[in-house]
Design a protein around this nucleic acid. Sequence first.
DNA 1: ATGGCCATCATGGATGGA
Length: 264
Amino acid sequence: MRITTWNINSLRARLHRVPDWLDQAAPDVLCLQETKCQDKEFPRELFEARGYQVAIYGQKTYNGVAIASKLPMTDIELGLPLQGDPEARGIAATIGGIKVVNLYVVNGKAVGDAKYAYKLRWLDALCDRTDAWRAAGGPLLLCGDFNIAPTDEDTWDADLWFGKVLCSPPERARFQRLLDSGLVDAFRKKHPDAWGRYAHTWWDYRGGGFQRGFGMRIDHFLVTADLLDRSRAVVIDREARKGEKPSDHAPVTLFLDEDPPAAS
DNA sequence: ATGGCCATCATGGATGGA
């Protein structure tokens, strides 16, 4: 079973890339962030024609999350983790016995900005919800665009990013609190020696960031120990960041009970 | 270099992203 997380940076602006990518990567579960479309405009047929069912939680212009799954989805939850959140940033479903939580964490703009306070409040709610999910027991998987680089080494330039949004201690403390709840950063655990550009998941469009290796590792899988035991690899699809009008994030795939294709 | 790019809504330029 393979599960992919991908900040698509507008689904409709990525329609020229998604069909081929889906056919080639063929994940069982695809968690999308920043779909940027209302539910009535979601291209369901694209997924349904390939054997997926979809659970969507969108809004106009901004944010928006969706799960496409070849396996049945039950217990679909929309609008988590923050009660009354006007922004569409969280969706969850139980798939193959796993509680899959797909998140688009608040960016925060800059330390001290009102959006940064919203980010911390949002993360606090996520930590609380995670504690409740953990207490309920069972396999739990959080994935998505966390907008947090967990360590200085998850940036291309630690000095440049020191203390800034995505890297600030309060954000990292909340990421640590998720780990303290019994979740594991699957990429870091499975690939402890992978650092630098081949461990990054996002690159700025500006200044040829991708070509120069100026990226960050901000898209994550946080999983319970039982799922880590089943994890063979976490693969960042850098090819999808190349070519015509890519998203600025690469898709990241967790391979459960299944070896990834050999690198070509 | 107070930047560079991209998507949205809208049709110019502001806003958000990270």
